[in-house]
Design a protein around this nucleic acid. Sequence first.
DNA 1: ACGGATTTGTGCGTATGTATG
DNA 2: ACATACATACGCACAAATCCG
Lengths: 240, 240
Amino acid sequence: MDETGNQAALWASIRDALEADLAAGLYAPGDKLPSEAQLAARFCANRHTVRRALASLAEAGIVHARRGAGVFVTARPTRYRIGRRTRFHQNLHAAGLHPEKRHVRLETRPADAREAQALDLAPGAPVHVWEGVSIADGTPIALFRSVFCAARFPALKEALAQTHSVTVALARCGLEDYTRRETRVSVSIADAIKARHLMLDPGAPLLRTVGINVDPQGRPVEYGRTWFAGERVELVVGDE
Amino acid sequence: MDETGNQAALWASIRDALEADLAAGLYAPGDKLPSEAQLAARFCANRHTVRRALASLAEAGIVHARRGAGVFVTARPTRYRIGRRTRFHQNLHAAGLHPEKRHVRLETRPADAREAQALDLAPGAPVHVWEGVSIADGTPIALFRSVFCAARFPALKEALAQTHSVTVALARCGLEDYTRRETRVSVSIADAIKARHLMLDPGAPLLRTVGINVDPQGRPVEYGRTWFAGERVELVVGDE
DNA sequence: ACGGATTTGTGCGTATGTATG
DNA sequence: ACATACATACGCACAAATCCG
């Protein structure tokens, strides 16, 4: 019988008990659960029965097992909302996290072909490039690279260096508002450099977004690429 | 020198030429490019210069190299738009692809906790579950699992079996219109079963979306989970 | 760098209760 | 009443990955 009827199966009770423990914060995200043998002893059940319960939790993405290591509480992915008004600080602050941005590179250089096309500039036109790591509550969330037209926003580089915020820096340069025209999402694999910045293993899956922010007249102002740590982020679209 | 202004660097020209070839469809996704030596001969440049161009393409995710094998065109043809009006057939048909859905499972069973919560049902309430593979031009794009309230749409199972279309089947059951309330995007890793369905290697990264479609009154009607083949799909959000 | 202990993954065998026809 | 199928539960053994001294 499923859990359809009169009596709950033992494994389902174990799952519920573990789920309650997790909800109560007894085990924090990233923590290792007691070994299957220990759990079997605690619930006075066979290890297979415990495994059935753990499988149910794993299927729901609540825990995940690593052979030889243990069963771990899946770190709650931070929900990152993407839409017409994607703002990093607002986004994470609303989620109760402490957002932070660390500089990796900030320079002015000629645009390459893709950047020029995205920003509707002549190839080789000077652009400000800001690269950094987005951090929430101390753990790196994403690596970003934003490109802006340097001719239109001459003072943007200093503004970014001072404010660490695209929204504020653009406002200082006279742009009151901007919106996201389109975001494309794909997967990519962390190379050695991205892995180091994000504190991941090389080869870890990343969520790659490419977006263009436009001014109220619809002209592109920012060409942004972001690589999110796949295991730490869930993107949310809709319901703006 | 970079492409610092006056004159385009040779490697950039080579990259642009290759990119044009790719855009022209000269090399199809998955194809192997000519060897670096052959390309060097074609462009009358040193192999290092060709490698610089290929590196630029690889960095953009357009090609990827496999040591000892060659440089391959990254298969990322399908841009799949997600938004308030996500419709599989429309979506791919608009992209000039031939969409198709293959049944994997179609059954009625009690809802599990998550499904019940998503659809706002009592736990264990009967739901129709439709699972299948979305195919575009013969290659599998995604694995989907859709859950509907069986009490509200008693005839939906047959309608799905006949029409292979959520939109049409729901219309037959009296629901004229529905919209996507929210979509969550995350990465996951293909297990053996998903890999077989999607014709991928186990361990390949997937784009996982979880979405809820609601009727005009805002009541949830479909709880849909989809696993896209990461290397074959790019999700597009915005500009609806 | 290596070995042994720990932990999860997998397979098989057995037994029992329950729903189905 | 009976056979069958299925989910549940337990036990044992070994493989594979990991951890730690």
